[in-house]
């Protein structure tokens, strides 16, 4: 077992733990903080099924963003869709053998990584060129885009510039999961890619990337507009509406 393999194994375990426990901690904090008053942004659904539908629209087609700014919506949606499909494609490093949909994703993944990089560049240009967006951007907002772009570009480099031994990486990854460590291929781009991913995982619970889980704890979106109806069903007084 080389020092390199040990170093990366530990790095990835730590990164995964920070990501998992950090995010769970933040989510727990959101869940347990009370929402004493009804504040859904109306018009709002008047049933829980309606709220599920509202949240689905936000999740899958970014409904509010679509109302706000079509260009931003297009860039943001393409970025997230490409990211999701690429992450699914990366399951190839954790499974034994290939399934049909995985092969399909690998073949069409050619366009996904390109879309990811182009949308990131578009978002970054927007952040730099539009005075209103530039004004509200901290250094971390620019660096976040740079980090994501670097992860995408190092990944693309492993496909087009200097191919990596995919099977060996698969073995390494599965070895981490089964606690039967296998050697990490000595490959510059791979090491950079993994280090950047570890960094992303570790900063996730301390950054605006929390917007992912946080959306579902945003009272303006998840609350049902039924203050009058619930109260008239007998749940009245100061204890009503707590945690809703």
């Amino acid at each position: 077992m080389t020092t390199l393999t040990i170093f990366y194994a530990l790095l990835l375990y730590i990164a995964a733990a920070v990501f998992l426990f950090g995010t769970l901690w933040r989510v727990w904090l959101y869940a347990r903080t009370p929402a004493p008053f009804k504040i859904p942004t109306t018009p709002a659904p008047i049933t829980r099924a309606g709220v599920a539908w509202r949240l689905s629209k936000e999740t899958f087609v970014f409904e509010s963003l679509f109302k706000a700014d079509k260009l931003l919506w297009a860039l943001g949606w393409v970025f997230h869709a490409a990211l999701l499909l690429l992450l699914l494609q990366h399951l190839r490093f954790f499974t034994q053998g290939y399934s049909a949909w995985m092969v399909w994703l690998v073949v069409y993944g050619v366009y996904l990584s390109g879309a990811l990089v182009v949308s990131l560049i578009g978002l970054w240009l927007r952040r730099m060129l539009i005075d209103r967006v530039r004004y509200v951007s901290a250094l971390s907002d620019h660096l976040m885009l740079a980090l994501l772009a670097a992860i995408a570009l190092t990944g693309m480099a492993m496909k087009y510039l200097k191919p990596v031994d995919v099977y060996a990486v698969n073995q390494f990854a599965r070895g981490l999961m089964t606690l039967d460590w296998q050697p990490l291929p000595v490959h510059g781009m791979l090491m950079l890619h993994l280090a950047l991913v570890a960094l992303l995982l570790m900063i996730f619970p301390f950054s605006k990337l929390l917007h992912g889980p946080a959306l579902y704890f945003s009272p303006t979106r998840y609350q049902v507009d039924d203050a009058r109806e619930r109260s008239s069903r007998g749940a009245a007084g100061p204890s009503a509406d707590r945690n809703r």
Partner: peptide, 19 residues
């Protein structure tokens, strides 16, 4: 005491949609 405040502090992506 307020979920809205806690969540809104963390979740802004600085996208500028509101600007």
């Amino acid at each position: 005491e307020q979920k809205s405040l806690r969540v809104f502090m963390d979740t802004c992506i600085k996208c500028g949609a509101c600007t």
